[in-house]
Design a binder for these strands. Structure first.
Lengths: 344, 344
DNA sequence: GCAAAAATGATGCACGTACATCAGAACGGT
DNA sequence: ACCGTTCTGATGTACGTGCATCATTTTTGC
């Protein structure tokens, strides 16, 4: 049988109340006694039963997740996965509420954060660009004792407890090295597409991509980022124009999504499968394009993992428990047709 | 507040005992009453609190894992990760015992399996080649009500409940496509190294590799697998001999580990960084070789994930709970220097 | 050596469910 | 309407820990 607190008390020659005080770091215990209890714990190999502990605490966790109201495939999937992870975690007393804020309005987000019902929320995850207002809002949350984690895009200069996501610069480097090696030794040009030049993740990826290109593949010229503003028409227009006028273009690097418009355009130009095309995020269209050969590789982060990790980390932070770094690290995954995951 | 069984009883107009009978599918409840209770459950959105349930059941799980006694880096890491995952899971009443069996003796494994203390074990995971004896042993375990999962290498023709690992053929294809594209359009030869030609995973990888090579890269010739028997001396000998005599060799595909001897040999020949070298499993030596450029890419499965997944799946099976397929799928990961994970 | 302060003990309820027992109610068949 | 069977209710204990209260002991400061 597993030892319980009662066994510890007997072994250490103290009362149950004292063991409890030691276990929960409550005041009013002499150092000597603390040591005696800890030694008993070690001797018996006691491991606190979390299920019982949580039950007794009758603690439940409500995690608030703030996402921009952008309607990109990525955000939508993330929201869905968070909700799904939340419904599975309901059995462990974790509830998730996903909130959306106007993407371009940091003040609105800050207002939402300070309006969170203090007593009912035990953790906050947010995906937002770093602004002074947000920094203050996060400091306010932390002051109220709430753990805060940055999601997808880091907030390095704030007091966030943790970052859950990938290093986008490294992701860009990864895309770069694949592009460079796939293109080979001959001189070539690469088209770079981005929805918006302002998004931090896009900038970071581009920076990583260029870094590798300049260092390892001087024969490849990465052209200036073409902005599509998320519009299929714009994308088709700029891509067509570039490809018709620049025959040296042998690769396309898409910093974001927009696979449908891109593959369609390539198809129309009769170039499907003839260029090295690398993008980010494995959307359903990206899957199809990988399978057909229109898309060469996708750099992705596992969104389901992202969602589960968020809940686990927030919970661990709320409990002041340790985090399994290995489990929570989000990998920069390279997806080819050959290693396509079976499901989303 | 979350509804509890008491709320359900009140809502359905029945007693707590009846709700309990319905929840746990115990006999002695009329269909009509069952329906009434289930409707109340739906109306209130009741979710059974697993922590309380398990506590009350005072249920604990002992999972037995059977691994071959091979001393490869991979197996050792797997064993370590399983133990680690087990110590973390101890807080949730899960215990893990890792057993080793003589790699070449299926009868010994079968004997160990049938000797498992029936009442004290609630799940079995095993990594072993499929043999008739093993098939029978697994059938025996299942008959005793124990869930059985295959680990790393599948046992498709047995009654195992689940397989946790990657499709090695797809992993071989992934290595193949990287090799082919990295080598470019010029004719080239590829050296293929394997520790043993008998291991099922090795065979599958080789098959996947050849499949892609023949289909997509006819200009590349994959040479016959050179057997190293896990010996550094043999490896050095065969690799040196081949590389000196065959100047057309521009790539090396290592079906298993043995990175240290390989990079050392390449170094001696002054070929470090000049060939496309692709291998499997991210050992500490592989990390170093990736960082130095001696190794081009590694195809891996996340061993920590493997271990955690094993425990989660066994537990879910023991509880007859549903499995989150997305979370349990082990990915075929491509690791380059650019997307090296921070830790193991 | 005494009072005040600090440390410890004893105890009991709470958390949400599992499970067992026994009494009593509703049911179906004759 | 009677009986036996099948359902249902009422109740209590248990699981391992959290947490609070109050009594008691030990330590500390002077």
């Amino acid at each position: 049988m597993r030892p319980t607190v009662i066994d510890i008390a007997r072994e250490a020659g103290v009362s149950l109340a004292t063991v409890d005080r030691v276990l929960n770091a409550r005041p009013g215990v002499r150092d000597k006694t603390i040591r005696a209890v800890n030694e008993a714990i070690d001797r018996l190999g006691y491991v606190r039963d979390l299920t019982a502990a949580n039950l007794a605490r009758s603690r439940s966790y409500r995690m608030a997740v703030m996402l921009p109201d952008t309607e990109s495939q990525f955000i939508q999937t993330l929201a869905a996965e968070l909700t799904r992870a939340g419904s599975l975690a309901a059995a462990s007393r974790v509830e998730v509420s996903v909130h959306r804020f106007p993407a371009e309005d940091p003040h609105a987000l800050a207002a939402m954060l300070s309006a969170l019902p203090e007593a009912e929320v035990s953790g906050v995850a947010l995906m937002a660009p770093e602004t002074p207002v947000l920094r203050d809002a996060i400091r306010g949350l932390r002051a109220r004792g709430l753990p805060v984690v940055a999601l997808v895009s880091d907030l390095p200069n704030t007091e966030r407890d943790h970052f859950i996501g990938i290093d986008n610069r490294a992701a860009g480097r990864t895309a770069g090295v694949l592009m460079g090696r796939y293109l080979g030794r001959d001189p070539a040009q690469v088209l770079v597409l981005g929805e918006s030049l302002l998004a931090r993740d896009t900038i970071e990826r581009r920076r990583g991509f260029d870094e590798v290109m300049l260092r390892d593949f001087p024969q490849v010229e990465a052209l200036q980022t073409l902005e599509t503003h998320g519009s299929a028409t714009t994308l088709r227009q700029v891509v067509t124009e570039m490809l018709v006028n620049a025959p040296a273009v042998r690769g396309i690097y898409s910093l974001g999504g927009g696979y449908r418009a891109l593959t369609q355009t390539l198809d129309e130009l009769g170039l499907s499968g003839k260029l090295v095309v690398i993008g980010h995020e494995l959307t359903p269209h990206a899957r199809a394009a990988l399978e057909s050969g229109a898309l060469t590789a996708v750099i992705m982060q596992n969104i389901g993992h992202l969602a589960r990790s968020t809940l686990r980390v927030l919970r661990a932070k709320a409990d002041r428990a340790v985090i399994d770094a290995g489990q929570e690290q989000i990998r920069i995954e390279i997806v080819l047709r050959e290693n396509l995951p079976l499901s989303a």
